[in-house]
Structure formats: structure tokens, C-alpha cells
Nucleic acid binder design. Structure first.
Lengths: 150, 150
DNA sequence: CTACAAGCTCAAGTCGACTTGAGGTCAAGA
DNA sequence: TCTTGACCTCAAGTCGACTTGAGCTTGTAG
């Protein structure tokens, strides 16, 4: 089984070496040794990193991701808590769908100010209701860099 | 039309007064005047705040939200750009759905380490493929405080 | 009239997830 | 053997979205 050094991992995942070190510091991934001073990883970490990316895309913090599927591959959370996550995600998906519908509406509605459009108002009210379910979730997967098509 | 002061807005929306000031500083909402030194808002801002919350839930930065539906209610982005947002949201929804399925799987699969479960592997590969579409989106609506049911 | 709770401003701090920089180490090729 | 370039560590910096704190102002209840 070929062992990979940090730059190979970085190249094949697109994740910066500094970030990989950071992940190791935080215990999300593990290097299985060193060649000289350089870290060596098994190809397996590539999958783990895919999982980490997915978790991040889902808005979970590194600590949470670690708790859900640790570097050893064993979930450190109870079934119960995982199901809570699942429900949170379902709500989040609902919210995103609402938002998408509203943005689509904004893009298409000819009203000068969308706040005056009864249709828009309706969408807004609906989405407000929905979020009043159970969750105090206050997310924002901040895009910091990248994206932003001028 | 009754004018509201900052604490009334705060109470009815659950958003901290400091955050409301922050939003005004950034130009997301506008107070229509002062009573003495105290800001006065029209009830309309409550809707705007609902919209802001939705945008945040969608992972947009305050600047982006401002660009999409400004404090005056006029979208400052072209239809084109809004549609790009819509597509981004669709992809994000896909990602979240994948993640939800995987977490659900982790919660239910009896395998000692989910990475060894072919089923899980499959889910992971599928979700990796999907995100290789068009987007460089690297989100994470960090939960910082709140939530975390012990 | 005076006290006070509630607001205000402005600067500085916080939190998570990294990035950047300075200075050190080492395996491998010329 | 010497050089080099890839990697290392550790501390400090950055970014967004607020929060906190210090010190000031003011409408209103007593």
C-alpha cells in the first residue's frame, strides 16, 4: 500500500497542506509515521477528507465532525444524537429550499420592491413559520474567500 | 403606524440589540429616526430581519444578503447573479441531503467502523461526485454558540 | 427635579478555521 | 559533500459576525 506525503494528499484533495496539519492537530486525521520529519499518510485519509469536507458543507464544526465520525472511523456520538443531527439537517434543507424559492422569485418578479409583492411576503411568512419548529440553529456557512463571480 | 425601539425589535425577533446596531452599521436595516438618542424602527424591519435570518441560514454573508435584498427592498444583483445563487443553493441542498443520508446510515449501521461498510463508502463516493459539478463553494454555517443538546 | 433604566458610541475582544512567516531539519540528487 | 527544496514547528495574524466594556446621554417615573 503506497504511503502518501502531505503534498500528494494536498494535490489530490485540493486541501492546503497547512489545513491538513491543522486537521491532524485537531485529531481529525492521523499520519501513520514520518519519513525523516515528513508526515506519511495512508490513501485512506483521502476518503476521510471527503467526509470532512462533506461535514463542513453541512455546517458542522471540526469538533462536531470529529465526534460524528472520528479519525478512527468510529462515531463518538450516540444514535440519539445522530438522529438529532439528521433532523437538524432536514430543517436546514427546508430553509435552504425556501431561500432558493425566494431568490428565484426575486430574480423573476417585476415588482420594484419585492417586500411589496404579496407573493414574496407569503414565501417569507411560510419560511418564518417553518423555522419556528424546534431548532435554535443559527447557521451561516461563510464563504470567506473563493466564489463571488465579480 | 407604531414605531418600535430597539428592545422591542430585539424581543420580537430574538436578535440581540447589539446585532441590530451592527446590521444598521452595515446597512442591512435602517432606523427612521431617533427619540432622543434612541433608534426608532418601523415594524417593517421585522420582515427584513426574517429575510436576513433566512439568508444567514442559507449561508450568505451580510454583504451578500445586502446585495440580494437591500434595506430598501431592492435587489442590487442582476437576475443572472441571482440565478447563480439559486444553482448554488440547489447544490448545497444536494450536499446536505447526502450528508443527512450518511449520518442516518452511521446511526443505524452496525459496522464497527463505517469506513469499512461498503454501503457507506458508496454514499461517500456518490456525494464526492456530485460536488464536482461547477461550484467551488466551501461552506460551514458555523454554529459557534447555541444548540448542542448536551 | 433627580435618579435611573435603557440606549448610545467607539474600541477592543472572541471564536473557529485556517494562513502566514520566521527559522530549523533533512532525504535525495548533482 | 554540498545544496536545495520540501516539510517541519510554533507563534501570530486574518476574516466575519458579533459581543463586551467603558463612559456618556436622556425620556420618564417617583
Amino acid at each position: 500500500m503506497k504511503l502518501l506525503d502531505i503534498s500528494e494528499i494536498s494535490k489530490s484533495t485540493g486541501i492546503a497542506a497547512s489545513a491538513l496539519r491543522h486537521y491532524e492537530d485537531k485529531g481529525l486525521i492521523t499520519s501513520i509515521g514520518r519519513r525523516g520529519m515528513k508526515r506519511l499518510f495512508t490513501p485512506e485519509v483521502i476518503d476521510q477528507l471527503a467526509l470532512i469536507n462533506l461535514g463542513k458543507a453541512g455546517g458542522f464544526s471540526l469538533d462536531e465532525i470529529k465526534a460524528m465520525f472520528g479519525p478512527d472511523g468510529r462515531p463518538a456520538l450516540s444514535r440519539q444524537k445522530l438522529h438529532v443531527r439528521v433532523d437538524e439537517l432536514d430543517r436546514q434543507i427546508q430553509r435552504l429550499s425556501s431561500l432558493r424559492d425566494m431568490i428565484r422569485h426575486v430574480a423573476e418578479c417585476p415588482a420594484p420592491s419585492h417586500m411589496e409583492c404579496p407573493n414574496f411576503q407569503k414565501l417569507l411568512r411560510i419560511s418564518s413559520k417553518k423555522s419556528h419548529g424546534t431548532s435554535p440553529m443559527t447557521p451561516a456557512w461563510s464563504r470567506s474567500k473563493s466564489s463571488s463571480p465579480s
